[in-house]
Write a protein that binds this DNA or RNA. Sequence first.
DNA 1: GCGCTCCATACGCCTAGAGGTATCAGGCCA
DNA 2: TGGCCTGATACCTCTAGGCGTATGGAGCGC
Lengths: 309, 309
Amino acid sequence: MERPELPLPQLHAFVVLAEELHFGHAAARLGIAQPPLSQQIRRLEDKVGHALFTREPGRVTLTPAGRELLPAARRALTDLAHGLATARAVGSGRAGRLRIGFAASLALTVLPGLLRTFRQRFPAVHLDIHEMTTAPQIAALHDKTIDIGLLREPPTDETGLGFSTVLSEPFVAVLPSTHPLATHRTVQLAQLADSPFVLLPRAVGPTLHDQIIGLCTAAGFTPRIAQHAVEWQTVCALVETGLGVSLAPASIRRIRLEGVAFRRIEPNTARTRVAVAWRENDHNPLVTHLLATVSHDPPYSTPSACGPS
Amino acid sequence: MERPELPLPQLHAFVVLAEELHFGHAAARLGIAQPPLSQQIRRLEDKVGHALFTREPGRVTLTPAGRELLPAARRALTDLAHGLATARAVGSGRAGRLRIGFAASLALTVLPGLLRTFRQRFPAVHLDIHEMTTAPQIAALHDKTIDIGLLREPPTDETGLGFSTVLSEPFVAVLPSTHPLATHRTVQLAQLADSPFVLLPRAVGPTLHDQIIGLCTAAGFTPRIAQHAVEWQTVCALVETGLGVSLAPASIRRIRLEGVAFRRIEPNTARTRVAVAWRENDHNPLVTHLLATVSHDPPYSTPSACGPS
DNA sequence: GCGCTCCATACGCCTAGAGGTATCAGGCCA
DNA sequence: TGGCCTGATACCTCTAGGCGTATGGAGCGC
């Protein structure tokens, strides 16, 4: 790419004159006097090396060279105008692209409301949504593969990343509706000691996994894990088949399955947190906007009553 | 179209920096010192209103806004470079489009050589060739529908048009080969007094028509016109059928028809001129080039011997 | 801690060019 | 012939910006 030879103001004057074919009118449209316009055109012609207009008395015409230059000049000007406009839109966060990673369990809870609100406020922003578990989200944030993460139980020792809690919710017991405890409104944790458990593998979300195990340990037993499943949806399906019971964040009650009952647990002091994560040094205004949307708006999952329906 | 806000040199610097992602290297490629480059980028960012690059220690990155502006800037620059180059080519006559009108009779004589020579010298020039008779050519030149006319017997009173003789040639008699005179090498014009004539209608080329009639008159007779035909090709075909004889410019001997003989005439002082015509106020360099090609090069029709073969 | 790399800042110089007013020159028409 | 329209010229002003040198300051490796 070589150094540009043609100043834009002259090209602008050229395009306008090519449209008007009248120095006086073109000058008026440009908001300048006529002599400066003559100079602009002359300078441009000097640089090109050839006449761009024929000035016959009474009429101004484009020369073949001028006709050749015109579309290029026009395209360049409109390209730049558009480019500038969209760059400004992107720069101010009115437009652009935001890549969001989210935990599958949030697809039914936090995510829809958040996306809806954000899209309403920034309709020109394109959202790339990628389902991924916690660890990959952290990695993708560091890689700059995603700009925002939505995950459970954020790690506390991640340098360079910021976390903000979106939702803090209790755990519920997930039981087959045929399970004897399903008739109670509340389940004492210790009562689950003899039931086999269906849980997410620890690798998918170590903190959450440890928290669930910790709940059981605090209740005086070590859960016997009958089966692992990588998604809460699958966990519930397995519970429905009678394979076991589970402990899960309250918001998964949105997963409505016929043969599955969700019951409040006792003690219910433990909370699991859903957090939004971002790179602390990311100045992308869209990230700021999303964080503002998350913190200013009501929680995206309204905890509802828990018990036999 | 609004007034351009972004100076091209800054956009150039921006594009180069976006490619290098290193101020020092980009400055070197631009042939300037590093501080001026920093200033250019800064000024551009001020105009856009947002950062275009993130300067982290050790690496320079495009911001989303910068990524948005980049293609527009690149396109604008290349568009202008191309536009300028082709405008210069057209302006200097190395490229472009030339519209040429020509009389049908020249398609076999002057035209091929002229086009070949011109195309060799200016291969990037597109030639629009339109067959048309003399009067429409004159009109088309005034209309600026064509830039060059190739015609016979140019009118002498056309203001605003220039004419230059390409070829001056004698007349020949066109006879059916069964005609008694076809056995002679030379035909005395007066001997054609009793034969019916096939001629072009006067409207197609008044001057040429009048010249032919004048030849006969000078020989002491008024030709009896049996048939008109608008092309020499047709004239020859009609002569071949025995419908009559004709007088024609020598170069139509290129039309080879079995049953037609071309014979030198006596007296053979009369000449018909093929001329190139152009607008005198046309400064199109291609016109100049074509005129130069016509006048500098040998005649495009080599008069050959005339007689029974 | 020292030096190196890399980018930013400060300051000065200088030219291109964009704008203005005044005026001229050629065509056209009444 | 004298106005009128249109574009070109001459001449002046002013400033944006492009470039340079010198210097500052943050990170990083040894």
